[in-house]
Write a protein that binds this DNA or RNA. Structure first.
Lengths: 211, 211
DNA sequence: GTCTATAGATAGATAGAC
DNA sequence: GTCTATCTATCTATAGAC
């Protein structure tokens, strides 16, 4: 399918960096043939963007609804995080393309795909507001910041995650859920004194990876 | 300064979406004049990217070092988060441009700016590893995930933050630090029963904003 | 449905006058 | 240092044959 190839290229290279010639080539055809199926590059990218939101939105709703209406808020948040990351990193290329190129498409294309994005964002507001109403979220928490920071932590993973055996997306979801639930710091702990060092830290070799 | 204008346009519009003509225009000159100062568009973007990393790196080290070597790990992490967000959203356009376009520049430009990025990333590893060694981080925490998720939550803010009176960057830093330290969920709580509803949730009007 | 051929616009980059 | 003029490449898109 043409859109599948387009989504993959957009996710990998970006919008402006992907020409119709590139898309046509991986589809095994010439540039002009694309115009039998689509009116313009903007029509192609609009469909890719909308499909991307639909994919992650449906997956997230499905996974959360599966838990039933009386599941613990923490379970619901974990399901939402897990589903979002799955759609973004494993399901197909549409959601990842949306996240990577949305801010780089022409303004009227952004406007045309904004509404579906907003609806999905609203669903996240509802999930967190529901948890708060049920008393599961610490009073005083800024729910808007919480939502934006969680979505940011997830969305940015398209910049650094590379599928590898032993590096499961489920583990990322578990890490982020744990972070959201109870953080990572030990509190009320008597800190160990900083050990004396003559050198800074182990200059151990590290693999290049974003960011 | 030419690079200042270039950084602003790259951050606002993206790399491919910003032409040398655009940069020249806001500089009050013609395209050809840029070639007296720079050899190519790639040279311009390389300098912008490297300056972006230098800015955030210097600001973060400065802010953390200011606390002294025996400051509590939580204080150091808060300073690091606060400095990163400040550089990204308030200081100038270089860091924001780096975050937004790094994944969209030609591969050899990415390679040429990778090293400074890696060094800054390594500094974050050191900050978190130091906190862990001092016993401040819950055992079993995946430090690589923690770093990537924190940087993601921060970096993604370039996609949604718009400077507005009453919406301080310090508040975002406080929210993320609180999230990292102790999370937002109330634990061991007897959950309130979900209130019965005839309709879903308030369909209240909401303002468009990313994501 | 896919092709060849090409139009029309715009990009990065260069030559040379001032 | 900045300009005008221009080169060359590439892009989106169209026309029309098969």
């Amino acid at each position: 399918m043409i859109l599948d190839h387009a989504a993959r290229l957009f996710r990998q290279r970006g919008y402006a960096e992907t020409s119709l010639r590139d898309i046509a080539t991986v589809c095994g055809m010439k540039t002009a043939s694309l115009y039998y199926h689509f009116a313009s590059k903007e029509e192609i990218v609009t469909e890719v963007l909308n499909t991307g939101v639909a994919t992650v939105s449906e997956e997230a709703r499905r996974r959360v609804d599966l838990l039933g209406p009386d599941a613990a808020p923490a379970e619901r948040v974990h399901a939402a995080i897990s589903a979002h990351l799955h759609a973004l990193l494993e399901q197909d290329d549409y959601t990842g393309a949306n996240i990577r190129i949305f801010g780089h498409v022409p303004p009227h294309v952004r406007a045309a795909t904004m509404q579906s994005r907003e609806q999905y964002e609203q669903w996240w507001r509802d999930v967190l507001a529901d948890a708060a109403e049920r008393g599961a979220i610490r009073p005083g928490t800024d729910l808007a910041h919480l939502r934006l920071l969680l979505l940011g932590a997830m969305n940015w993973s398209v910049e650094w995650h590379t599928p590898r055996p032993g590096k499961s997306v489920a583990a990322i979801a578990a890490s982020l859920t744990a972070l959201a639930l109870h953080g990572v710091f030990v509190e009320g702990l008597k800190l160990r004194k900083r050990p004396l060092r003559t050198k800074t830290r182990k200059p151990k070799s590290w693999k290049p990876s974003l960011p």
